[in-house]
Structure formats: C-alpha cells, structure tokens
Amino acid sequence: MMNETINLIMIGRKNRRRRYVLVTSLLAIIAFILCWAMLLLGNTIYPIQDVIRVLLGEQVKGASFAVGTIRFPRMIAGLFAGFAFGIAGTVFQTMLRNPLANPNVIGITAGSSAAAVFCIIVLHLSNTMVSIASVAGGLATVFVIYLLSKGTSFAIGRLILIGIGIQAMLTAVISYLILIGRVHDIPAALRWLSGSLNGAKVENLYPLILTVLLFVPIIIFMSKQLEMLELGEQAATSLGIDTDKTRFILIVSSVLILALATASTGPIAFIAFLSGPIAKRLVGVGFSTIIPAGLVGIILVLASDLVGQFAFVSRYPVGVITGIIGGPYLIYLLIRMNRKGDL
C-alpha cells in the first residue's frame, strides 16, 4: 500500500514536471516567434535573410535603418521590459499571497511615474535624467510602503491597503502636474505614462538589460524561499526561513528590475498584473512560475505592440492595448474575490 502511494506521488510529480517543461518551452517558442515578427513586420516587410544580415552587422539598403535603428531596439525594449514586468509582478503576488498585490495596484509604478512626470513637466530634464528619477521614485515608494506597513510585525493586508492609498495619492499628483504643465510638455508626459516602445534606443536600454541579467538569477535562486513565503509567515519561519531577509532581497531585486523597465518603456499597464495568474493557470502547481511569468510578460508586451501597430487604422502605444486587456480582468478578479469573501 505504501509503495503504491509513493508510486502515485512520483507519477503525479513526473506529470507536473512534464507539463511545466512543455508549457515553458511553448511560451519560449511563442516569444521567439514574436521577436522575429517585431523585426520582420513594418511598412516594408524585409526577407528574413536581410534581417539576419543586418543583425550580423552588414549594411543592407533600407533594411539597416528600419531594422537596426527602429525595429531591433523596439524588440529588445519589449523583450526585457516584458520579462521584468512579468517576473516582478509574480514575485509580489506570490510573496504577498494576493493577486491584487502587484506593483501597479500597490503604487510602485505610480511612484516611478510621478517622479518621471515631475522631471518632464516641472524640471524639464533630459530623457536620461527622467529615467534615473523614475528608478529613484520607484525605490523610494516601495521603501515608504514597506516602512509604513511593517509596524510591530509584517502584515500583508496592511501593506496592500497602504500601497493602494499611496497609489491613489501619487495618481492625484500626476493629474495635478499634467494640469499645471506647459502645453508642449504635456504630450511627452502622456506618451511616457501610456507605456510605449516608440523611440527605444539600444544605448538607453543597457541599464535595463544589465539589471535583468544581474537580479533575475537572484530571484530564480530564491524561488524555493518564495514558495515557502506563500505558505504564510509562521509556516515559512518554522521551515527555517529568515522571512525579513528573504522578503527584503526579493523586494529589492523585483523593484530594481521593475523600476528600470518602467524607466525604459513607461508603465505598461497590467503586464505585472496579468503575467503571474496566466502562467500559474498554464503551468499548474508544484513548480515555480517565475520563468513562465516572465515569458508571458514578453508575449503580452510584444503581441500587444504588434496589435497596436497593425490592427487598427491609427497606431496605438502598447500600454493602450494592454490596458484594454487588463481592465476587464481586474473587474472579473474583484468580483470573484468578493464572492469568495477575500475582499
């Protein structure tokens, strides 16, 4: 009887592992196809061999400018920003055990946005300084939220409520700054707030790329501790996890990649919110959803950007399309949580 139970457990684990590998592989393939679609599609569709030659550094008439200067930086921005948004979102949702506890809802991206809009409208700073201020604003916001929510002991509900309150305050600040802004500054601020891959330049993406390459491995390495935090404070502590230290490392790593992504593309709506739940539904239980969530983030950003470019008469920033997708899901989630008594 014992052997049969062990065999059933092993078979179940093998099936879950097979599903995880299959789903993750399919997501990676879809992301790869979308990356190539970003390079190939445009006002002129170039042959794949010309695109490859451009990527290898050759000069190809027409294609060198369109692919090398416009499409390739746009694709890289979507690739790394989508990966960062997806991973940061699922870390917060898993760690805080609440699908609403993502960086968009609890005010972190609002902090980055408020700092960026202030620099654009009030200080009239360069794009580089706006990006630096955006990162600083995101870090300062998460520090304030964590400090206010800690109290005598860490409480998830307190953090979420404080985050929602700060998000509302920062949104009001952004609205006020736009109202008092000069006419020629407002379009730049609105373009930044909408979340867009337009005008991406490879040299401006190096900080994002470096941050993702440095901190995503840390998050993956700590995926087991993250899963233990999902069990609750007492359970994680009883399993030997230093919850404060683990939470601090995960929050700092996630906020850094999130802030750099926001600084590079603007706050692309709902990617951090949608990626984790979609990945969890596809992968199932038993394995970390960090990498699948990052891949889902890439797919959502690149697919939405392609839709915004080619599906309508006018072209729309990627953030507009993701907002259309994410808004109904947020309403559905709130209704479902209310029916379950989680709100």
Results as ranks from 00 to 15, higher is better:
residue 66 A to G: 03
residue 101 A to S: 09
residue 83 F to G: 05
residue 102 N to K: 12
residue 68 G to K: 04
residue 101 A to F: 13
residue 71 R to F: 01
residue 96 L to H: 09
residue 70 I to S: 06
residue 84 A to N: 01
residue 105 V to K: 01
residue 83 F to L: 15
residue 72 F to R: 04
residue 82 G to W: 06
residue 95 M to W: 15
residue 86 G to V: 05
residue 123 L to V: 08
residue 85 F to G: 05
residue 103 P to M: 14
residue 99 P to F: 09
residue 71 R to S: 03
residue 67 V to E: 07
residue 92 F to T: 03
residue 82 G to M: 07
residue 95 M to H: 07
residue 118 F to I: 14
residue 104 N to M: 13
residue 104 N to E: 14
residue 112 S to V: 10
residue 114 A to K: 09
residue 104 N to F: 11
residue 86 G to A: 09
residue 74 R to V: 01
residue 85 F to K: 08
residue 99 P to T: 12
residue 92 F to Y: 15
residue 85 F to Q: 05
residue 101 A to R: 04
residue 102 N to R: 04
residue 89 G to I: 05
residue 118 F to G: 07
residue 65 F to C: 09
residue 101 A to N: 11
residue 107 G to N: 08
residue 76 I to Q: 04
residue 108 I to Q: 10
residue 118 F to D: 07
residue 111 G to Y: 10
residue 67 V to S: 03
residue 97 R to K: 14
residue 99 P to E: 13
residue 104 N to A: 13
residue 103 P to K: 13
residue 101 A to I: 07
residue 109 T to F: 00
residue 95 M to T: 01
residue 90 T to K: 02
residue 79 L to D: 05
residue 112 S to T: 14
residue 124 H to V: 05
residue 115 A to R: 09
residue 98 N to W: 01
residue 95 M to P: 02
residue 93 Q to T: 03
residue 121 I to W: 08
residue 121 I to E: 09
residue 91 V to S: 03
residue 95 M to V: 02
residue 121 I to T: 08
residue 71 R to G: 02
residue 123 L to K: 10
residue 84 A to R: 02
